[in-house]
């Protein structure tokens, strides 16, 4: 191998190794920070991990919202009309949070199977249902009809 080729080989090897490391680190960072979505049924069946950041979505169950009298703590249930999961949250809920509305909560499951939410998302549209929720409801065969046709149009 002549010196010029050898130099070229080194450069190519250097680039390949460098890109490999960069891609590896990026994928590692990505894997540490993905939040998987689980439906209440999946959570009830124990598919969701405990103590890891997840997203859960469903419709807020009528009459399930309990507010604390002293602080901003609030607790409510979300359902895919098959199973329900209790969510606990401290803070200000989004404008469109209300009973019967589809929401997505981000947080961790504790040992009681309660989702300790750090963020609650509701979309700025009264008929909106998060796609994940719509799909979960569709799967469970519990999509509300005919109101369901109004969703996401």
């Amino acid at each position: 191998m002549n010196p010029k080729r050898r130099q070229r080989l080194f450069i190519v090897l250097f680039i390949v190794v460098g890109v490999g490391i960069a891609v590896g680190l990026t994928l590692f960072a990505l894997n540490q920070n993905i939040n998987l979505f689980y439906s209440p049924t999946q959570i009830a069946q124990g598919e969701a991990p405990e103590g890891r950041r997840i997203r859960a979505g469903g419709m807020v169950v009528d009459g399930s919202v309990i507010r604390s009298q002293e602080s901003l703590e609030v607790s409510f249930e979300i359902t895919d009309y098959e199973n329900t999961v209790r969510v606990e949250y401290a803070g200000i809920l989004p404008d469109l949070f209300r009973e019967g509305q589809g929401i997505v909560a981000q947080g961790e499951l504790d040992s009681r199977g309660v989702l300790k939410a750090v963020e609650v998302l509701a979309k700025h549209d009264e008929n909106y249902m998060p796609p994940e929720v719509a799909e979960a409801l569709e799967k469970a065969g519990k999509m509300p009809r005919p109101a369901g046709q109004e969703f996401n149009k």
């Binding site: 540490q32 920070n33 993905i34 939040n35 998987l36 979505f37 994940e132 799909e135």
Partner: peptide, 10 residues
């Protein structure tokens, strides 16, 4: 392969 979102820390 499931539904997920990538968080701001990434």
């Amino acid at each position: 392969l499931g539904k997920l979102s990538v968080g701001p820390p990434y």
